[in-house]
């Protein structure tokens, strides 16, 4: 449980230039997965799932919708975490 003050960019993963590199790698992988839609044979069941890069845009939009909904709900139902104490 040693509590040592961080001495700046101690770890290679914490350095800004490496974080930037990870981002570029991530974007490259994203592009690659969308493009690989062209390479595999799809058997769309409902029509909508046959659109190009369906899972990509659907996943992204689902998450945006979920977070938006969660934020709206949170605006009503969030309380300080000491709400039930005392």
């Amino acid at each position: 449980m040693a509590k040592v003050k961080s001495n700046g960019d101690d770890h290679w993963l914490a350095r800004p230039e490496n974080i930037r590199l990870v981002w570029w790698l991530f974007i490259a992988v994203l592009v690659a997965t969308v493009l690989s839609d062209l390479a595999v044979e799809h058997k769309p069941k409902f029509g909508i799932d046959g659109t190009f890069g369906f899972a990509a845009w659907f996943g992204l939009l689902s998450c945006v919708a979920l977070v938006a909904f969660a934020k709206a709900l949170g605006a009503i139902l969030k309380r300080p975490d000491t709400f039930y104490d005392g």
């Binding site: 991530f26 595999v40 990509a56 996943g59 998450c63």
Partner: peptide, 15 residues
């Protein structure tokens, strides 16, 4: 595999 990778990686992007 492609479906799942797209779904998950783009959710990660959203995060």
């Amino acid at each position: 595999v492609v479906f799942q990778l797209q779904l998950l990686l783009f959710s990660g992007l959203a995060f």
